[in-house]
Simulated assay, not measured.
Amino acid sequence: MKRIVPLVLTALLLAALPPSPTFARTFSVSVSQFVEHPALDAVLAGFQDALKEQGVDVEYSVHNAQANMGTANQIAQTIAGERPDLVLAIATPSAQTCAQIIKKAPHMADVPLIFAAVTDPQGSGLVPDLETPGANITGVSDLTPVDKHLGLMLEIQPDLKTLGVVYNSGEANSKTLVRLLREACKAKGVALEEATASKTGDVYQSTKSLAGRADAVYVPTDNTVVSALESMVKVCQQYQMPLYAADVGSVPRGAVAALGFDYYLHGKQAGDMAQRILVGGAKPATTPVEFQDGLTLHLNLPAAKAQGVALPDDLKAKADKIIR
Score class of each variant (00 low, 15 high):
P128T: 14
K148H: 01
V127F: 01
L150Y: 06
K186I: 05
V219C: 02
A197I: 12
S206D: 06
V165D: 07
D215Y: 06
M108N: 10
A228K: 11
V146E: 03
I137G: 02
E194K: 11
H149Y: 05
I102G: 00
L192Y: 09
R179C: 01
P133E: 12
L150G: 02
D120F: 03
I137N: 06
E155N: 14
I156A: 06
I137R: 00
T196W: 03
P133N: 08
G123P: 03
G201A: 11
D202H: 06
G189F: 02
V219W: 01
D215C: 04
I101F: 00
V217T: 11
N223F: 01
T138P: 05
K188R: 15
A116D: 12
L126R: 11
L177S: 13
G151T: 12
S169M: 10
K199D: 14
P128S: 13
S198K: 15
E131H: 09
L163E: 11
D129T: 11
A172R: 12
D215S: 04
A184T: 05
S231A: 10
V165E: 01
R182M: 03
M153Y: 05
L160K: 13
Q205F: 07
T144I: 08
V140R: 02
L152Y: 08
D110G: 04
T176F: 03
V127W: 00
K199L: 02
V166C: 06
I156W: 05
K188T: 06
L152V: 12
M153G: 09
M108D: 08
I102N: 04
V165K: 12
S206G: 15
S141I: 09
S209V: 06
L210Q: 13
L113K: 09
D159W: 01
K175S: 11
D110R: 15
R179K: 15
T200V: 14
